[in-house]
Design a protein around this nucleic acid. Structure first.
Lengths: 127, 127
DNA sequence: CCGTATCCCGCGAGATACTG
DNA sequence: CAGTATCTCGCGGGATACGG
């Protein structure tokens, strides 16, 4: 992949393709893709909380038992990248950051509702 | 399960706990649990096919591009254990096995429908 | 035709420590 | 307060080969 000049690679990411090649074929089915996204350890918990009201970072950290800072940041950033959550920074001292559900997040939670009901009702078998 | 006598362990699984301890805490949220179940690589594809009509094993194997026998069996057995799919064996020669959607599977697919619609509509961002 | 049995590998995700 | 940076490990899942 090196290509051009004679340069020795200084970073592995240097030769990353400019085009986002679908590395996983899960992309083929958007439904499965969505289920995988929502099915990670923290996403639903965070979405559920944010569905009620906006939260600040450490407020979430306290509200969600057992989550690490790393996973909280990662999950929130992914949600933001997907357009499900909005992030607003207040340049106060010390800094304050607020997270809220974006409109697509709201409609997603609505669409999820029947499945959630099914899950609770059938919790014993396939839950 | 040797146990008893003085036997030297012959298998690692020998000391497995008799009680199915919830190894993962995903169990805490039935919705997340369900999303994880449905979110694996082949489950939705199989459920979608079986939602239309019953299939035999090799018929599924041919219909689902890229699935291995191992994963087909595994996925079907999990679906059966969850009560979502029914398996019927016809003792012919050679043997024939038919899989069909069980009633809970039907209601699950119904409940999944709004989310599937959302996924397709928002395929570009969070798909 | 309908599976099981092994082996193997990458990635999601947890623990821990550090920073503007 | 609100994050990054590393390291590590378990498990989902693929390849392959064999069995009733």
């Amino acid at each position: 992949m090196s290509t051009a000049h004679t340069g020795v690679p200084t970073s592995p990411a240097e030769h990353a393709l400019p085009v986002p090649v679908p590395s996983e074929e899960y992309e083929r089915c958007p439904v499965t893709g969505l289920l995988r996204r929502l099915g990670d350890k923290w996403t639903l918990v965070l979405l559920s909380l944010l569905a009620r009201r906006p939260y600040r970072f450490n407020e979430l950290h306290r509200a969600v038992e057992g989550i690490s800072q790393r996973m909280l940041t990662r999950t929130l950033r992914t949600l933001e990248a997907d357009g499900l959550v909005e992030r607003e920074v207040f340049p106060t001292v010390p800094p304050s950051v607020e997270y809220r559900l974006a409109p697509p997040g709201v409609s997603l939670m609505r669409s999820l509702s029947p499945l959630a009901t099914w899950a609770v009702e059938h919790a014993r078998r396939a839950g």
